[in-house]
Design a protein around this nucleic acid. Sequence first.
DNA 1: GACCTTTTGACAATGGTTGTCATGCTACAT
DNA 2: ATGTAGCATGACAACCATTGTCAAAAGGTC
Lengths: 144, 144
Amino acid sequence: MSPQEQPVKEQRRTRQRAAVDEVLDETEDFISAQDLHAILRTRGMSVGLATVYRTLQTLADDGRVDVLRTAGGEAAYRRCARDEHHHHMVCRSCGATVEIAGPAVERWTNSVAKEHGYVDVSHTLEIFGTCPRCAAQSGGPAGR
Amino acid sequence: MSPQEQPVKEQRRTRQRAAVDEVLDETEDFISAQDLHAILRTRGMSVGLATVYRTLQTLADDGRVDVLRTAGGEAAYRRCARDEHHHHMVCRSCGATVEIAGPAVERWTNSVAKEHGYVDVSHTLEIFGTCPRCAAQSGGPAGR
DNA sequence: GACCTTTTGACAATGGTTGTCATGCTACAT
DNA sequence: ATGTAGCATGACAACCATTGTCAAAAGGTC
Ligand SMILES: [Zn+2]
Ligand SMILES: [Zn+2]
Ligand SMILES: [Zn+2]
Ligand SMILES: [Zn+2]
């Protein structure tokens, strides 16, 4: 997997990129470009929306942040603790995210791909649910 | 999983829905609402775009077609052979789709969820790659 | 056919994302 | 420090998939 490791193209240090970076560092949950931009505005930091989009996209391309598509189809970004390939379990209600690694799943996808002759494979795997905190809050003992 | 099975709300039979249904029956690969609409136009069948969207959404809600989000974020639909829960391996180049079922993966997601106290969980899992045919065509022996 | 309800479709509106391009700034050499 | 070359930025337009609107059309029923 990942045959050609991009050397992560050299990038210039700019105020805007630092700002985006900072928000990402402080944010536990996945965040959309729009929301990140809103936060920057709130803080009085002026950064163009297009720049936020570009910056996040670049970070994602370089594998420096993880991306996932929300149910609504929007892209959401997150700086993750571990660097290796992994997946996420996200709370639908509060966004609480747990990073999960499943070697077995990775093996399985590879074997399935090989079995059918598919090459250059990648995959997406996300788990959505309600985290314990949110479940306790709204669900009560006899949930739903 | 799926505690409340919707009895699939009664629907009226209309020319438009039949048309969409027919295309879905003939189409092996995942297809977007836009593309399906285009096909209908090609065939001279006049069906409003909004209607195509509504019809596909309804079918998806009723679980009569599977949905996935393309890399570009568009929704794509497909009538699948098996009725039970399963996933897909899709060719990035030609769209060739293989239905795959992985009991182990299902068990794994459930155990992970339980382990972290997440409830009411669902998941998405898609494999993308290049099918044997497309690989042979463009890739050649010393691919890339 | 009469009648009521659902469905349709043309078009506007939405909303996330990307393209444009003149201007700004970083990095680096002088 | 100054100059320069080229990447980066931002305001705004453009895109494009998807959804909302609502009067007109069609399905189902008696
Ligand atoms: Zn939560
Ligand atoms: Zn994986
Ligand atoms: Zn193919
Ligand atoms: Zn599954």
